[in-house]
Nucleic acid binder design. Structure first.
Lengths: 345, 345
DNA sequence: ATGAAAGCGCTAACAT
DNA sequence: ATGTTAGCGCTTTCAT
């Protein structure tokens, strides 16, 4: 019952000032649910202005049962792909009068659990969730009855809503692009093996190789963290063995780590190693060389995610979005085509 | 009074189940403010487990007057420097049991106002604020009595708390580093002229030049957005005139835009243009070439920001942090020293 | 069209 | 050590 803030004007004072009941003040503020006579409305508005009244969102949330808040749970907001998604989600949510509670788990599964519990206690109206793990805390969320949209793939048998691109297809498409360049020795730097998205991306890579009749060499699967350092370390390791001619890095950060490691050995892309990556952002487009990358339609996905939370019906809808293979210079295309429009102008 | 969620267990049910009063349930949950007999405590805990009770954070916030939430207002969460700061802030805040409400204004001043109003209505316990503009909405925040820490410099006469590095010093130091390399023709790519941080960074640059007896050429001040595209455009413009030998880019994104533009003209750093930038992140360390950059102690600053909100006393404390000039390859140092430890291992 | 009042689920002061 | 209850500031139903 401690009130840390300065005195706050309440609805009662406004009502007194306007000479009405508190209910009418609510009707004016909320534009409903009942009509208010024009004269009364004006008196109320004047009283609001005069008193400097500001509705208390917490009290409103308690009474109305909606916090007008979504929770966003992500592994790490410092990942540019994720922060670009967060940006789009916030824009979208705010257009609907809602704000995002940021839950950044710092790539830590225990922390992720704490955050989800915390956000659920806060009665968020919905959760937008990317787990650090292949076993997201779905039960917990469903038990609370909170609408939830997953932003990655989950075990098919889980009855959850999800939004994603088909990552296996995308990985296959990216790898196939390298094959079309004529490369036959194609390695992959991927995330932790147990994660579903890692598995999808590996299997897409494998599929493309098999379709082209190329050998799948297990020693050319470099599993590491989805970080720059991970890509760097994996590449160092790769450089210690027989060097492939091309590489599929399963996220943008790994690709950057890879380029750095290459450069420390006097190597570069696409000259010594052709490179494509997954989930590129503006960074890929501006990098030198620009990165050929699988692009997810972040803005559209954000729109859909918010829409799904708004229209929540408890059914486990799954939406799949088309990805785009954005051609940059890292795969060697730039030396093949001379007249390509620049990415960045 | 709509309850969108499934039935939620309340404290009353727990009390009934445990055969105690509701107050005791609170005391158990909150570990106070009054002691509870061990036996009772255990009965309550058992009842909580059995019923699946979860405290309602909103009701708690209304009754206690604290939402255990901070608002974070930033120009754009997709900016890597900002998202790394957001990451650190969230970690720090959560250690204190609080969560961040993300207010991403999308570089739009009107949106920023809406967001601040929204967050204030939500009764956030504090605000961490970086404005898109030189005139932040301080009055509004102060009128609400909400603790607030600014993360950039504000007009000195404003009585607000702020945390920052001395940007003029940092800019001067960065520029001086270029001068120490022997470069005499040093340009600057900066942000919008009216912003205080732009002015600080320009004046630091200017000061360093003057101290070295070098000419300050107004045509070598390229004002643009703090974005990759901005850096790109400014560099294109620069390339149309007489090319300087060195450049100070006033944020990391501009630096990347610059490198891209250079590359499209067959030029590169540090060979054709030595480059240092402001507010580098891990991206600078991993880029090829790695970027020489002013680094802010993001983690410490986040710690301090949260601490200031916790210990709020209404006084306009200002904290200045030491920056670090992180040496990379973009300024030419790499060719001078051969034995430098790698940045990224 | 408006007023009165019953919650929303909790905290904590006031009882015992 | 524990029970009872008055708020917290709002939404909305039930009256009028």
């Amino acid at each position: 019952m401690t009130k840390p803030h300065v005195h706050r004007v309440t609805r009662a004072e406004v009502a007194k000032e306007a000479g009405t009941s508190v209910a009418v003040v609510s009707y004016v503020i909320n534009n409903g649910p009942r009509p208010v006579a024009q004269a009364t409305r004006e008196r109320v508005l004047a009283a609001i202005k005069k008193t400097g009244y500001r509705p208390n969102g917490i009290a409103r949330a308690l009474a109305s049962g909606t916090t007008r808040t979504y929770g966003l749970v992500v592994p790490n907001i410092a990942n540019p792909f994720i922060s670009s998604m967060a940006h789009a989600l916030q824009q979208e949510a705010f257009a609907d009068g809602r704000v995002l509670l940021l839950g950044d788990s710092g790539d830590d599964r225990a922390r992720e659990l704490e955050l989800i519990n915390n956000l659920l206690h806060r009665q968020v109206d919905g959760l937008i969730y990317t787990s650090v793990d292949r076993h997201p805390y779905i039960d917990l969320i469903q038990a609370s009855g909170t609408p939830c949209v997953m932003l990655d793939r989950v075990e098919p048998e889980l009855n959850v809503c999800s939004i994603q691109v088909n990552e296996q297809h995308a990985a296959r498409r990216a790898t196939r692009h390298l094959i079309e360049h004529g490369y036959r020795d194609i390695a992959i730097i991927c995330g932790p093996q147990e994660m579903l998205n890692t598995q999808d991306r590996i299997s897409g890579w494998r599929l493309a190789l098999e379709e082209a009749g190329l050998a799948v060499r297990p020693e050319w699967i470099f599993s590491t963290d989805y970080t720059r350092q991970g890509g760097y370390d994996a590449t160092k390791q790769m450089l210690a063995g027989e060097l492939p001619r091309a590489l599929f890095a399963t996220n943008e950060q790994q690709a950057f780590g890879c380029l750095r490691a290459l450069s420390e050995h006097g190597l570069s892309a696409p000259k010594d190693l052709a490179l494509v990556c997954f989930n590129g952002t503006l960074e890929s487009a501006f990098n030198v060389p620009s990165l050929t990358t699988v692009r997810q339609p972040v803005t559209q996905m954000a729109k859909k995610a918010v829409e799904m939370l708004k229209k929540w019906d408890g059914q486990p809808h799954k939406y799949e979005f088309d990805f785009e293979l954005e051609i940059g210079g890292s795969c060697g295309c730039r030396s093949l085509t001379t007249s390509r429009k620049s990415q960045v102008t």
